[in-house]
């Protein structure tokens, strides 16, 4: 297990060191307490999983929309076939994947460079820049739909995936800088100094010392950018306009709903197709995500 940990995980000390036992399981284990806990866990599971389960259930039931049953009354995969062929979700998935990956790549790169600047250097206006990043994070981008629409139009990027990537990078960047900054700051300066003493150039130090150490942070910010791009709705709706072939999953689903608003089986199948990849990905990276959040956003 221990080998799976990154070299420096900001919260590692707190969690691993045995003499500082963390808040957590109490030694008291009265049966009543256990029962109460069980009930709470059950309620929580129902609340979190019911929509997911109901989505899956309807998507697999040929009777969905006609009769409700708690398992598929007439199991079928026809809804999936329908949405992937006629529904065009194959294309939508591809588009979303391209947009999300493009966003991750560009925003992570920019955020990393910027976070190194603010975490490692003292320069005039540093505070102001930090303030700017924070304030910008507070601006509801949704309020900027109109000017951004005009902006992207002026760049001749309306109805293109690149246009969306450009906007999503702007959406993801402030949070990315803010989070990565925590990670960069947590890398011991001594390591860098050691690299310098060995005669390494700054660039080399960046690649061989800093980058590997902030990799977990990059993973966390990447997840955030990915999700931002995958889920985003209002910009995709306004900027892709009539370019159906460039629709992302979010507006692809809306446009599908517009035509098949009563075909709940198919709508749920489409929803599942959109959700499940992210879900699996999320469950796989949940440890990373948690450490990323605490290190970056919280321990700022």
């Amino acid at each position: 297990m221990s080998t799976t940990r990154p070299l420096v995980r900001p919260d590692a000390g707190a969690v691993r060191r045995p003499q500082r036992r963390p808040y957590g399981r109490t030694s008291r284990r009265s049966p009543l307490r256990q029962l109460g806990k069980g009930v709470l866990v059950a309620l929580l599971l129902v609340f979190t999983l019911f929509p997911v389960y109901w989505m899956l259930n309807s998507s697999l039931d040929a009777q969905a929309g006609h009769t409700n049953s708690f398992w598929p009354a007439e199991p079928t995969l026809e809804h999936y076939v329908f949405v992937l062929t006629e529904g065009g979700f194959g294309t939508f998935l591809r588009n979303s994947l391209l947009v999300a990956l493009g966003t991750v790549l560009v925003s992570s790169a920019l955020a990393l460079l910027a976070s190194v600047a603010v975490a490692r250097f003292r320069f005039r206006m540093r505070t102001q820049i930090l303030m700017l990043v924070l304030v910008v994070q507070m601006v509801p981008l949704e309020a900027l739909v109109i000017p951004l629409f005009v902006q992207v139009r002026d760049l001749q990027l309306l109805e293109t995936l690149i246009g969306l990537v450009v906007v999503y990078v702007a959406l993801a960047l402030p949070f990315g800088i803010w989070m990565l900054r925590g990670f960069v700051a947590a890398v011991p300066v001594e390591l860098e100094e050691a690299a310098y003493l060995d005669g390494a150039s700054w660039g080399r130090m960046f690649w061989s010392v800093l980058l590997p150490l902030v990799a977990p942070g990059l993973v966390a910010t990447s997840i955030f950018s990915f999700i931002t791009a995958w889920n985003e709705f209002i910009f995709a709706m306004t900027m892709l306009g009539g370019a159906t072939e460039n629709y992302t999953v979010a507006i692809g689903l809306r446009s599908f709903f517009g035509v098949h608003s009563n075909d709940w089986g198919a709508i749920m199948a489409a929803s599942t197709i959109i959700t499940v990849p992210v879900m699996i990905f999320f469950i796989l990276v949940q440890r990373r995500l948690a450490s990323g959040l605490t290190a970056g956003a919280v321990k700022a």
């Binding site: 929509p51 999700i227 992210v278 999320f282």
Partner: peptide
């Protein structure tokens, strides 16, 4: 188990989630 379930809820995109809730609360069916 529980945190995986929570992750599943988190991963559901807003658009998808909205349609699922609309379907659950649909008036007639």
């Amino acid at each position: 188990v529980t945190s995986s379930a929570i992750m599943a809820a988190w991963a559901m995109p807003a658009v998808t989630g909205t349609y699922v809730w609309v379907w659950i609360f649909d008036a007639d069916r």
